[in-house]
Each structure stands twice: as structure tokens, then as C-alpha cells.
Amino acid sequence: MQDRPEDVPAQPQAQTSPQPGSTTQPTPVPAPQPQVQAQPLPQPRPEPAPGPNQGATPTVTYGAPPAYPPAQQYAYGQPPGFPPPPGGKGTAGRAVLWAAVGAVAASVLWAGGVLVLGPLGDNADLAGYRAKANLCSAVDYTALRTEYAEEDNVPTHSALKHKAIDQSYCSISLKTSSSSSYADAYLSVEMDLHKTTDPAPEFTAVWSEYAQRYEDYEVEEVSGFGDEAYLVTEDTTSGSGTSGSRAVTLAVRDGWMTYQMSWSTYSSSYETTTPPEIGEVSRWVKTDTRSTLENLRSD
């Protein structure tokens, strides 16, 4: 038997089973530890596969499958029937959609306005008349001054200008002389330029049937003034002419222009004389209307 060299380790002795009745426990031999291998990281989910006619279906590797298929992109947000995705993108998409719809609607309304409203103003037949800011400057009442010699130096006037209508109004106090304490009669003139609606039907209805309002009025259609004209008169004075009132109105329509010149007085306004007769005042009003209309057309 050869001696073991000193630098060679001794071989482990085999473990023997304890003898029956022995109390000595065997020394356990530690089991070899398994090697831990690194697991590969999950790969990102692949992009959606192309359509059936655009190539082969790619192989899905790691990663959980998507809960829903990717939504198709629409120019104005989600298609009808689909809830908007989280993050507020659906709200922005709807805003773009409504903005586009609003632009289209505005274009349609604008086009409708041009087609509907434009021709109305273009077709207005104003017969050459012009609106006046101060209608009194154009009113000629020379014929009436045969009776009312005193001129009113402070007549009142008003005007309204709108895309649908222009209105001018003038009110003049009439005095027979400078000695009159108050006005003996009153003269009012109004001109309306209707720029979007033809006033003919309503003008005819109002003035041709003016007598329906009051029993004391009389209506006469007269010629020589525009397209149609009506002379409306009232006389409620007694035989002596010391009570009651008298009034004369000439209403004229020329195209889409309407005009009224009205004279009125009370018998009690005259201090020393009686008011002029209706027939005489009617002639004055006709003469002054003709010259006033000429002024309104030429200015």
C-alpha cells in the first residue's frame, strides 16, 4: 500500500447507514444549487397587420393582445356610434366637425341672403325721391300762405333712416297774421321711402277705405299725382262755423314712395274770422303737394 501524497486531498468517504440502535446521526450532504437563467424581456406588440391583399400576416410574439382593434382614423373625429377615446380627443374631433358644419351652414345662409334679400332692395322703385333729414326745408306751402301769411320760423321735423325704410316728417304752425296768439291751423307732411316692401296694397287699403274709421270723413280718388292718390276731408263745423273742426289730407303713392300732406283746424282757433272752406283748402293742398314732390325728387 502506497502512502498518499500530502498535496492530494482525501476522497470523501461514503456515508454509511447507522447501525441499528446507534444514536449517531449522519452528516447531511448539501444538494447542488440549480443555475438561475435570465428570462428574455417581453417584446413590444407588433404593428397592425396589413390587409388581406397587402401582405402576409405577421407572427405575434410577446405581449398581451390588444383589447380592441385599432380604430380607423377619421378626418372629423370618431365615426358615428363609437364613443370617443380617452384623453379628450373625441371632444377636439367634434369641435373640428362642428366648425366645419358651421362654416358650410354660414355659407348657405349667406348665399340665401344674397339671393333673397339682395333683389328686394334692388327692385325698390323709389321713383327718384330722396329722403331728407330736414323735410321742412323741402316743403312748399306757398298756396296755403294765401290764408296764412305769417311764416313759421321754427317748424319741427324728424327723420328715421333704416335699410328697410326712410321716413321724414315736418310739422308747421299756420297763422293768419302776426297778431294771432296761437296757431290758427296746422300743417303736417310725411314722406316714406319703402326700400324692401312694395307699399301699394296696404296704401290702397288704408286710404281708399279711410271713411270706415269715422263717419265724418269723405274719400275721393284723384289723378295727376304719382301712381295713385286719395283726397280725404272732414268737416264737423256747424252752420255758423263757430264750432267743430275741418281737415284735408292728400295721400300720394309714387312707386314705393308714399306721401301725405295734412291740414287741420278748429273753429275755436280763429279769433275773429271763420276757417276757410274745405274745397278751397283742398285746392291749396293739391298745389303745394305738387311743388313739394318736385322738390323732393330734384334735391
Rank of each mutant, 00 (worst) to 15 (best):
K161E: 10
G21K: 05
G51D: 13
D122R: 09
P26L: 11
P69R: 12
S173G: 15
G244I: 06
P70N: 11
A159N: 11
T59Q: 15
N123G: 02
T273C: 03
Q78L: 02
K195W: 05
H162S: 15
G102Q: 00
A229V: 06
D299N: 11
Q212V: 07
T265W: 00
P46S: 14
P5L: 13
P119L: 06
E209K: 15
E277N: 12
S168H: 02
W256C: 00
A100D: 08
E209F: 09
P58K: 11
P276Q: 08
P155M: 06
T287I: 08
A105L: 15
N123H: 10
L193R: 01
Y169Q: 09
A10R: 13
S238E: 11
L174E: 02
G239E: 13
S107C: 12
G279M: 02
A211L: 04
V101Q: 09
S178F: 10
T156Q: 12
A75H: 05
P42T: 12
G21R: 08
G255R: 01
P276N: 06
A211Q: 14
S137E: 10
P70H: 04
T57D: 12
W110Q: 04
T146N: 15
E218A: 14
T242D: 13
L135V: 04
D3L: 10
E202F: 10
P34H: 07
P155T: 04
P32C: 06
A56R: 13
T91K: 04
T204A: 15
Y141N: 14
K175F: 13
S282F: 10
I278P: 00
P26A: 15
L115V: 11
T237D: 05
D3H: 07
A14G: 10
A103K: 05
Y214T: 08
P44W: 07
K132H: 07
V232Q: 00
Q2H: 11
V154K: 11
S137M: 02
